[in-house]
Nucleic acid binder design. Structure first.
Length: 429
RNA sequence: GGAGAGAUGGGUGAGUGGCUGAAACCAGCAGUUUGCUAAACUGCCGUACCCGCAAGGGUACCGCGGGUUCGAAUCCCGCUCUCUCCGCCA
């Protein structure tokens, strides 16, 4: 959430940022915010003055009572009746104005960093770099959704969509045999790598309450994208970002604890309402998938250095996995609601001939911290909002898809060397 | 699921109607003392919003929401959460 005083002092900057995001009616919305803000301040001033007068009278009455001047005390009491009625009205008005202000504020996205390219859609994202050689596949190479049918136990598929469909529904596959072992191996590999890079491991809950959903920006606007357990009013997490970042909701962090670096493995759940079509086949898009996530909380002046480190770290993982990848700097129109700058990492999926997003690394600056009330006293100053960041490191199913497709040979699928000690086999055949 | 107890500042924890934005202690900050370290001593030390160039001033906040009262951390009502015991259970 943007801060009103910031908008007040940086109106043009705010407008420019919102335009870069193609935010509809930026001018009207900002005008309305500033107008409501002015009304709010005027109302509060009037209210505060009235309350100050009431407090003064109450003190006088105390003194009068003490000195036994009953009549004077009664007279003073009479004077407060009007003031009280007035205060009541003003209090209601103030609450109403604050509510209106908040209602608009939560619909305003974060402002993009100056390096974010202008653009409307994924087409306009900037390709920062490409790494690795795209493999040349043998003549009868297949996409992963065909390959998985060939290598399962007992002649069945190693990733079984039909079976998942039976017990849950579409988009909830069952991993069997070597596919299951490969996934477990990857989780351990990713966690070990993060530990070596000085991230401390956490295992958070995978259901969250409304306050947590609000803190990281999933609620109120992305309500329909999360699974919701109505009986207990709990949401299934779409990413470990939510519970891990919310560990620090309403926290005044000790300066010495910074920077905070966490890694966590969780399943992630996404309803993906409204998305279907050819691009969602196989492992490309699922309702449940596994992901290892890194989260950092940083001093404001360090957050962009941290973002670059995280980007390098994720790229290091992809290099160790020997997967060709590219890094995108998302344009204003494609960035997430809460982000100020996002890098997407995409791996090449050779048989499909397309790039698959496997990581998204973002700096949210103070946008989440403001919602979370996540602060620290830095350098002896007043509490100030910290910067939050996170990134996938990594999301598993598309990595599996890419390994299957890129590393296929007529004899079987070659497992990247770094994973062999973790899964205990070199080839899926 | 049943019964009881509780929720106060960064932490522990006093406080039952005005002198309490809140004792004391711990932590933190500044200083004094001091071969060094440690200790001791003195002072400072909550958050948000509003007015103000500033100095400064105002308001609100003792889990949350209402109420009583001239005046509420303190009294009343509702809610939430936590803890303890019992039950159930991986």
């Amino acid at each position: 959430m943007l801060q009103i005083p910031f908008i007040r002092d940086n109106k043009e900057l705010t407008l420019a940022g919102l335009r870069k995001r193609n935010f509809a009616n930026a001018e009207a919305v900002v005008e309305q915010l500033l107008d409501l803000d002015q009304q709010r301040r005027d109302t509060q001033k009037t209210l505060d003055d009235g309350l100050a007068r009431q407090n003064a009278i109450a003190k006088e009455i105390g003194q009068l009572m003490k000195t036994g001047q009953k009549e004077a005390a009664e007279a003073a009491k009479a004077e407060t009746a009007d003031l009280k009625a007035q205060s009541k009205t003003l209090t209601d008005q103030l609450a109403d104005l604050e509510q209106q202000l908040q209602a608009i504020l939560v619909t305003v996205p974060n402002l993009p960093h100056s390096s974010v390219p202008v653009g409307r859609s994924a087409e306009d994202n900037e390709v920062v770099l490409e790494w690795g050689e795209k493999p040349i596949l043998h003549a009868d190479a297949q996409p992963h959704w065909e390959l998985i049918k060939r290598y399962g136990p007992n002649g069945g598929p190693m990733i079984d969509f039909d079976l998942g469909n039976k017990i849950s529904g579409a988009g909830f596959p069952v991993y069997k045999g070597k596919a299951a072992r490969l996934q477990r191996a990857m989780i351990n590999f990713f966690l070990d790598e993060a530990l070596a890079a000085d991230y401390s491991e956490v295992q958070p809950p995978i259901v969250i309450n409304e306050a947590s959903g609000f803190g990281t920006g999933q609620l109120p606007d992305k309500e329909g994208q999360m699974y919701y357990a109505t009986a207990d009013e709990l949401y299934l997490i779409p990413t470990a970002e939510v519970p891990i970042t919310n560990l620090y909701r309403d926290v005044l962090v000790a300066e010495a604890e910074l920077p905070i670096r966490h890694v966590g493995y969780t399943p992630c759940f996404r309803r993906e309402a409204g998305s279907w079509g050819a691009h969602v086949r196989g492992l490309n898009r699922l309702h449940q998938f596994d992901k290892v996530e890194i989260v950092r909380i940083e001093r404001p002046e360090n957050s962009y250095a941290a973002l670059e480190q995280m980007s390098q770290y994720v790229q290091g993982l992809l290099q160790k996995l020997e997967l060709p990848y590219r890094v995108l700097r998302l344009c204003g129109g494609d960035m997430g609601f809460t982000s100020a700058l996002t890098y997407d990492m995409e791996v090449w999926s050779a048989a499909q001939g397309r790039w698959l997003e496997v990581s998204s690394v973002s700096n949210f600056e103070t946008y989440q911290a403001n919602r979370l009330k996540l602060r620290a006293k830095l350098d002896g100053n007043k509490p100030t909002l910290l910067h939050t960041l996170n990134g996938s490191a990594l999301a598993l199913p598309r990595i599996v898809a890419s390994i299957l497709e890129n590393n296929q040979t007529p004899e079987g699928i070659r497992i990247p060397a770094v994973l062999v000690p973790y899964c205990g086999f070199e080839v899926i055949s």
